[in-house]
Amino acid sequence: MTEVIHIEKKNVKFLQKVVELSGEEVTMCEQCGICTTSCPMAEEMDVSPAGIMRAVQIGDESVVESKAIWFCASCFTCTVRCPRGIDLAKVTEALRQLTLRKNVDHIDLDEVKKESLPAIALVSALRKFTG
């Protein structure tokens, strides 16, 4: 089944929001896919990094619900390789912010067994899963 996306004003607004939050001109992406092949987490992602960029370009808000943006390790390999000079890590962070700013806790600190987790994972979880 091929999904149909009807482009409406809200799609454009979503793109503008991401551009504003990230400070990156997402429309500059030429969809070469170098980010995807450079990404150490790409195989775990439900949407590839280049796919995320395309989704933002056409204003497909479902990308915010993707798991991929939370798999991003912020390693910046995509950023240093992008031939158009786009900072993809900032775009992904902007997408995370859209959820984070809703101020919803997805994780209860009291329920986390602190000794069972490396400290860095805890910090990462705090950063990604709490508002």
Binding site: C32, I34, T36, T37, C39, R81
Partner: peptide
């Protein structure tokens, strides 16, 4: 194939080159 490879790897045994690319 529409895609730009990020990096190439060499198979140390047969010296062949492994290309990994997103078919966009």
């Amino acid at each position: 194939i529409r895609g730009r490879p990020g990096e190439l790897m060499e198979n140390p045994e047969n010296k062949k080159v492994i290309v990994r690319v997103e078919d966009t």
